[in-house]
Simulated scan of single mutants.
Amino acid sequence: MSSDEESPISQAVYDQLATSYDDITTSAVREQYEWPAVQSLLPSLDGIHVLDAACGNGFYTERIVECGATAVGVDASPEMLSHAQERFADDDRVEVNQADLTDGLPCLEDDAFDLVLCQLALEHIEAWEAVFAGFNRILMPGGQVVVSTSHPVRDYIEAEYPVREQILAEEASYPEIEQVDRDWGDEDSECVVPFYRRPLAGMFDPALNNGFVVEQVVEPVVTDAFSEATPKFATVLRDGPPLFICVRYLKPR
């Protein structure tokens, strides 16, 4: 991405978070809530080639190759990538590149990957058509895409009804794709992260329009480990809509 091109909307904040990002990836909501749902959708990773799309600092890329895969990690944040490059400096199983998912991934070859893994990144992108066009191009026939992203139902409820202070919205229109930012900061400083909420169809149409079929949908459930780590939050999620939705798409042969 050249310096005169417009940066992805969330790049600056992820550059800011890069130094402490392991605190997020190792949090209970990721490790005991989101990751088990994602893991249930993954094929056997032994011997396959995986694109970790929006790899961040490489935390989950490392987990992928530990299961026997080779991997390429791409991310729009140069600060995140510097941490990923340091993580894999002596590991020839992993290649790391800077890339904006909406640019079609020109740094990657056609039909080169068995699997694309994209965790909690698409909610920062307004239009998904170009993203799935790129995924289709770089995947082999029979390849799969596993995505986790914000759940449309919870996103709408939290934007329309102010139940969490960090959701920066006054109202929502369910059929629309709308920017609804979130403040991940604390009492001393704000950290506003750009997000987009969308209807359920907005999750599936961009993939279907680019030749994918939907194989499976998983909504995370409250695990015992998550409940022990964050009992109050677990109670909210046990009775209400989940934070995330996870989908496996297939590129037919």
Rank of each mutant, 00 (worst) to 15 (best):
V147P: 05
A76Y: 06
V180E: 05
F132C: 05
I64E: 01
V72K: 00
D4E: 13
A71V: 00
S40E: 03
R198G: 05
D52G: 04
V72T: 14
T102C: 10
R238Y: 05
V74L: 01
A234T: 04
F59R: 12
E126I: 02
L81I: 04
G240N: 14
D224C: 02
N97D: 08
S82R: 15
V74Y: 01
P152W: 00
A172T: 09
F204L: 15
T70W: 11
T26P: 06
L101N: 04
P206F: 06
C191Q: 11
I157Q: 02
L120V: 11
D23L: 15
Y249E: 01
E187H: 13
R248A: 05
L120G: 09
E171M: 07
V236Y: 09
R93C: 09
V213Q: 14
L237K: 12
K232E: 15
T235L: 07
R182Y: 02
T223Y: 03
V74Q: 02
R93D: 11
A37Q: 08
T70Y: 08
L243V: 12
A130Y: 10
E31C: 08
T25G: 07
R30C: 12
R63G: 14
D91Y: 14
Q144L: 11
Y60T: 04
R87G: 03
H151A: 09
P194K: 08
S40N: 11
E129L: 06
G73Q: 07
